[in-house]
Design a binder for these strands. Sequence first.
RNA 1: GCAGGGAUAGCCAAGUCAGGUCAACGGCGCAGCGUUCAGGGCGCUGUCCCGUAGGGGUCCGCAGGUUCAAAUCCUGCUCCCUGCACCA
Length: 970
Amino acid sequence: MSADADADGDRAYDHEVVEREWRRRFEESGRYEPDPDEGEDPTFITVPYPYPSGGMHVGHARTYLVPDVYARFERLRGEQVLFPMAWHFTGTPIVGAVERVRKRDPDQIETLTDAFDVPEDDLERLETPEGYARYFAEEADASYRRGMRQLGLSVDWRREFTTSDERYSKFVSWQYRTLRDRGLLEEGLHPVNFCTNERQPVTTHDLLEGEDAEFQEFTLVRFGYADDDAFEDAVLPMATLRPETVRGVTNAYVDPEAEYARATVDGETWLVSAAATEKFELQGRSVEVHERFAGERLVGADVENPVTGDRVVVLPAEFVDAADATGVVMSVPAHSPDDYLALREVTERADDLTAYGIDPQRVQAIEPEPILEIDDYGDVPARDVVEAAGIESSTDPELEAVTQDLYRSEFHRGRLLSAYGEFAGETVADVREQFRDSHRERGHFDRMYEFTEPVVCRCGGDVEVAQQDTWFLRYNDDAWRDLAHEAVDDIDAVPENTREQYHHTVDWLEEWPCIRNYGLGTRLPWDDEFVIEPLSDSTIYMSYYTIAHRIDEVPVEDLDREFFDTLLLGEGEDERAADMREEFEHWYPVDVRFSANDLVNNHLSFFLYHHAELFDRPEWPQGVTVMGMGLKEGEKMSSSKGNVELPGEVVDEYGADTVRFFQLNAGEPWQDFDWRPEAVESTREAVDRFWSRAVDLIDDDGDGDVAVDGDPDRRPIDRWLLSRLQSTVRAVTDALENYETREASQAVFYDFEEQLRWYRRRVDTARPAARRTLREVLRTRLRLLAPFMPFLTNELHERLTGEPAEDAAWPEPDETLVDAAVETEESLVRALTEDVHEVRDVTGTDPEVLRVYVAADWKRKVLATVAEHAPDPDRGAVMGDVMSDADLRERGDAVNDLVSDLVESVRERSPEERERLAAVDETAVYEGAVDFLAREFDADVEVYREDGDPHDPADRAGSARPFRPAVHIE
RNA sequence: GCAGGGAUAGCCAAGUCAGGUCAACGGCGCAGCGUUCAGGGCGCUGUCCCGUAGGGGUCCGCAGGUUCAAAUCCUGCUCCCUGCACCA
């Protein structure tokens, strides 16, 4: 140290120096790299491997810190713990990001350089997916691996791998071949976003417009062309989201100006807009266009409703958008305000329709056709709402809201009329799908997909919904689903209310398309055009950790089905795999999976599904703990918004222990936590204070003299502190067993600090026995804090005792140090102190003398009588008993008042507490606190007994009650 | 709409499952005092209203109810957040 360093230089906490030393020791010791031992039941914990589409920020950090705390806790308790880490390279976002880097997309470059401090020179390395992923996984300053090391995660780095490693791919291939053999994979068509310009599927990240657009499944009502001309027998499919309104169709509309086509679609003749023929082709239909013509050609035709057999006329309408859906629209004026207005308008100018060869009278005769009844509306709800809102035309801006309102009401409360047969009287919400399906089966309905709004690719091309050949995981398979439910029942779900969410998800999951067209990852074993997508290649990889550090011994080509059958199922003859199976059997199952709460309804449920199918029940996951997300000053942390904090930077600024402690203490794991610099700063100050006090204690007596059994110099207040320490040990242990990092860290750090504040106030802490007590306390607290602050606690513990905290054992509550009596007595002193403060403040008197009057014995007798009536004393009954005592009876009203008071106090206290109080010698307790009270109030302190002829100049003694002495200050 | 979560004093936030010790932990901010220069740090005190004696009043999203007793239990309502599928 330099000569001019300030006097306290060696006391201030220099986190950089301490952390550097311990980071080195953590890595060199290999202590987090366990191999199977004799122990029967090791602890295996996992977290989602990071997806390095960008760097690590502190919003991610807690996901790894909570398991690290649990890992360190279990190790201190003597458990063998495996906490591994790997990298998830699979997926399309990295590929998309690389594309944008190559094009030097300004937004992308800004995110990288601003949020993650990527130097200009490094950009070139980000031009391949592998390079990009490796960069953010391991190489960048803001990489996950660096962040994790800086934060001191106790990870077994020997087992690190990436999901594009060839050996990992062999493992995933085995998984998918096995699932396929078991009939849990199925081939089929699936809608995707498809760029019509690039002729390939695109992700939402690739979109310029319409990122929030969803595609909807429309029902096509197959109206039949009913005129006997060249189009005879053709189908006019009309798209609707409300298939049940089919019985309310009064007419159809086309755009007379737009281009329509006659095409053979899947072997039938269809009449639709020209634009629609392309969509049908994309959606997996075979389409051959024979002729194109203006919509006018269809106007005036009769079409036949497939459900009712009624014939309705096709009318012209400008509002029809031929680019949307099929370009042929069915009109339900009774239930659609749009259609109602359109009908009214077309009726008004019915005479113009003669130009199309339509009889105006036929149009004027069209009446809305109700299909359901709904309370608060008349027969024709669309007319009601239009008239009520005073809407005159289809361009009225209010129309949209009115329409949505009506649709919602009809959906939830509308009851179908008798024409609906088996569905009559039911609400639309209850039967829409069944109704649709039944008509689909009968060939009346078909389907198509369409976006809710225009979608445009970054390349400028129009994006449409396409049906693509794909493979599905059959999560809706009944037997598999049952197994998954059992797996849900088996786990320790934390917090418990997530269990219901897993069950709900399992019931709701349908088939899951498990492949993509491009991206890093594992190729589908039997069709290398496709890549297994990220949520599907990460369901059982926890098992891969068990052998990840040894699998390089085996040549890739030997990693065949036999190998993994042997390794994971114990069903093969591969010798090397059989040998490695011991590792698998040692570590499996996963004891706790720590994950994010938004993964419950996909990844975590898949994780349970796949384990349930592929492994025997004893190997199923034992627990899943989900975590909330990270906010920064109340906003979601997001790298694209630039509001992120990088672990490297905050560790430099505040120190790793502070960053860890802050995050673990900011809320329970499953709650969201908010990173607020001022709060982190305040944590840093508390950590520094802890350090200085500890160093101070350690330095003033270098002999490490901490524990003296039955220290004869110990005073009650020392015993009080040690007793509180035991309850803290219990509280921290209980909390950590339940993953409650906030509860635990709060108890050992801040809450106990409160106790220490009282202790320091209460006694002279320079006393040797006090120093010994404080060192004993420090030793225990260091071990309790070790999971949270591994750097600082190891350092201090080693300075105090000669060994690092992580070499010591987790503390057990020492029953011989638990002293309920002394805690009760101390609570009386505390209460008295508070009372005197209050009196002093209210009166504004700075006391010269403080007189304390302990209640008279007869009052204790009254209390005892009241207590006999616990837990719910009745005043009358108590008074009866009390008055039977002649001595008390004489005291009359004083007794009456006292009883009322004591009845309350008895009701509010537990039996144990009353018992402890009854044993207290109040006078002795206050006399023992005289020195303290004198110091606290800078006054002379006198303790009297109410019935001991006290000096009582202000006549206060009479108001003393048991355990609530009267006081007088002057 | 469905599912899950939430609403507590200037701000953050504990307490709610197991009603009483809750005017309601703790932190931040603010104010005062002390620590023998200031500042910082540290310590103490105060921070809903009234009160020169430890008390009283009002309070925990809104409105009711149960109870000797409600932030906590019950009923109804309002508002906010997250997810609802192929982005990981």
